[in-house]
């Protein structure tokens, strides 16, 4: 038993470190693919690492009106993402799943968002406030969608622990595949775009403050604190990709300790994350951002899909 806990903790730590290490690369790859579609050479895929290194060397400036919330938020952000990274299966199903289930995961991410929204309003800048109010509008629909979508998988596999969901799906094979899975997958993918401020919900590359959602809340941050916020956001994107990959299509993930299994697991997750990154880049290259007040349509569609997924589980 103690061995189990140790083993799980070891792999959880390993996976969390890998995710933090890889997340800037994934963002770099998305930017590169987008640049290619624009016939540009684009910056190097390692650019996000250089950005992080540069920001981490710099001092932070704080608005004199900012309270402790602004100062604490970067640490809360990186900590909550870090804890989630410990609980989400990446290349193996060994993770700290026994600490908390998917509800904990979703609400740790909500904690991150909650503090980011507070920090956006904290310094009293207009754009921060606008970003915060829009983020709340978006997340009020995205959050239940995300929960419902993952609940579908919980219903299929009979457990609410993320690593156990992956494990049961991975060892059972295609027997568990149902229509509900695809509906939930679609719903979760839209949530992924919305939660990570990608086109068509938000434009991660804009300089227009008036249109910003996610970036608006970060406008007041600089230096080390900005680095932490950015890194947390990037890692959040990788976490969502990992959940998408390992909860809906966990095949290939390492379920035992054999070297071969681990190797396959690593290759499988890298391939899956790359496919997701490519899909995101394709969507960003091929669509405009939606009007702010059309977003609820898209998001409620995704919610409906998630709802249908749950219902179809009982009906079919």
């Amino acid at each position: 038993m103690v061995q189990d806990v140790l083993l799980n903790s070891l792999f959880a730590a390993l996976q969390a470190v890998t995710m933090f290490a890889l997340s800037p690369l994934i963002i770099g790859i998305i930017r590169k693919v987008k640049a290619w579609f624009q016939s540009r050479k684009g910056s190097s895929i390692w650019q996000p690492y250089y950005d992080l290194a540069k920001l981490l060397r710099k001092d932070s400036t704080m608005s004199k009106d900012a309270s402790w919330i602004s100062r604490a938020t970067p640490y809360i952000a990186i900590a909550s993402v870090g804890v989630v990274a410990l609980m989400v299966p990446f290349f193996t199903t060994y993770s700290l799943g026994f600490v908390g289930d998917l509800i904990v995961v979703v609400y740790l991410l909500a904690l991150f968002r909650f503090f980011m929204v507070l920090a956006g309003m904290d310094a009293g800048s207009t754009f921060g406030g606008m970003g915060s109010s829009r983020e709340m509008m978006v997340s009020s629909i995205v959050e239940p969608t995300m929960l419902l979508a993952i609940f579908t998988m919980a219903l299929i596999t009979g457990t609410t622990t993320l690593s156990s969901i992956s494990y049961s799906l991975a060892v059972t094979g295609p027997d568990l595949v149902r229509p509900a899975l695809f509906l939930a997958l679609a719903a979760f993918f839209i949530s992924l775009l919305a939660e990570n401020a990608r086109v068509p919900v938000d434009n991660p590359a804009t300089h227009l403050e008036l249109t910003m959602i996610h970036e608006g809340m970060l406008l007041e941050y600089s230096g080390k604190q900005l680095a932490l916020m950015e890194w947390a956001s990037w890692t959040k994107f990788l976490l969502f990709s990992a959940i998408l990959a390992n909860v809906f299509f966990p095949w290939g993930i390492a379920t035992d300790l054999s070297a071969l299994g681990m190797a396959v697991g690593v290759i499988a997750i890298i391939a899956k994350v790359l496919v997701i990154a490519l899909a995101v880049a394709l969507i960003e290259s091929g669509t405009s951002k939606m009007r702010l007040f059309r977003l609820p349509n898209l998001l409620t569609e995704s919610f409906t899909l998630a709802l249908l997924a749950v219902m179809s589980f009982y009906i079919l």
């Binding site: 290619w36 050479k41 684009g42 091929g286």
Partner: peptide, 16 residues
């Protein structure tokens, strides 16, 4: 609808 996928780097190459 999918024109732009053909018009990007695939058609023109990198112009930078």
């Amino acid at each position: 609808l999918f024109r732009f996928y053909r018009l990007g780097v695939g058609k023109r190459g990198v112009v930078t």
